[in-house]
Amino acid sequence: MEYDIQIKTAVLHILDTSISFPVLSNNGLYIDGDISEFLEKHINKILDDPNLKKAMFTGDMNTARDLCQAVGTDKNNFASASKEIANMIFDIMLKNVDIISGDLICCLLTINDEKYYGILKLNYKTGFTHLVNKMEEGNTNSIIRHKTLLPAEGQKLDEAVLINLETGGIKLIEKAYEINGVKEYYLSKYFLDCTTDLSDNEKMKIIDKVTKKINKKYYDEDFDKVAKLKNVVSQNIEDNNKVSVEKIAEDMFETNLEVRKEYIQEIQKAGLTEEAIQIPQKIAERKFKTHKIKTDTGIEINFPLSYYDNSDMIEFTNNPDGSISIIIKNVSKITNKQ
């Protein structure tokens, strides 16, 4: 999906924990065509990322919220607020060595005419580049490992925050790091001090995990149940881009009311309490368009989910000796896949 994104102003601060202080900029970025396109592409990817979470500030005292509100009230506060935000994040990074160093871009922007404060952490990537050494006898070109490369336009950011300056709502992508011996999300817990909803990816992981658990408990990991789940989800998405947990339970477990009830309870216990779940198109295409099975004899078959329950294309037959025969039908040509 394309969004109408307009970058109004931006500043870049260097948060490299190999040195003991942040390198803060006193002047904003020059927003020319290349820089504007670079930021807009990254923000588009952020908005479409299935790991994006909605969040809200909490607490009576919240420094990050107050700084954003100050910028929303008067954009002249942008420079000082951005420095304060960079310092807050750098202090957390210094105390927790696993957090990756990177450049921090703070920006004021509009998304579909709504005002946002953006915080993009461009974590450093390691790569190789050339180096020209000028010597008396001439140039000597070599290859060096560069440890502070920024993510390219086509790469997704691991950490980003978009704060709506009118509603206070937060759109958040964050990465878990080891803090005090435990994997934690430092942006939401220690910087923003906010509550977060589940991302689309997290919701689908809960459904997958609970389905496999119930399938193993009651149906001995019957592959038919897994295919059926994908088919139910796929059909719901085609109808309205949403899936209902009740509908999944009803279609998968049919008249077995006890299993249906347990399935829904396990979903809710895992933190997914919504009745209907919006499934982004990218996740739908990746997870629910095809189904892959593997036999105990080592044969793997990957087939379009639309063929499930279509005996004209593929048929599974239970034999008297307990084995299963798989018949693939109406094939006009076979090609080799490397």
Rank of each mutant, 00 (worst) to 15 (best):
I214D: 02
S199D: 08
F288L: 08
T196P: 04
F223V: 03
D4W: 02
E84K: 13
G181K: 01
D103N: 14
N139K: 13
M204N: 08
Q268T: 00
D222M: 03
G298M: 02
E221V: 02
I206W: 11
L149C: 05
V161C: 11
N319M: 13
F303N: 04
N26I: 04
T73Q: 14
E40S: 10
K216D: 07
L122P: 00
K205Y: 01
Y124F: 15
N201W: 03
K156H: 07
K209Q: 01
V210H: 09
G118L: 00
L187V: 14
S244T: 02
F128E: 12
E84C: 04
K247T: 05
K8M: 02
H291Q: 07
N310S: 12
D239E: 14
D197K: 12
K83D: 14
P22N: 06
G168L: 12
T129P: 00
Q6E: 13
I328Y: 10
E250G: 07
G322T: 01
N164H: 03
A249R: 03
K156Q: 03
L67F: 11
P304L: 00
V132D: 11
A160Q: 08
Y116E: 02
K83W: 05
N240T: 12
E238P: 05
N44S: 10
I328S: 08
E221R: 15
A152T: 09
I207N: 00
Y307P: 00
L157T: 04
D296K: 13
D321S: 12
K83P: 10
N51W: 10
M56S: 15
L39E: 09
D113E: 10
S82K: 03
V97Y: 15
I277T: 06
D208N: 12
Q69P: 00
G127L: 01
K147R: 08
S18N: 15
V161M: 06
L172M: 06
K156D: 05
D321I: 08
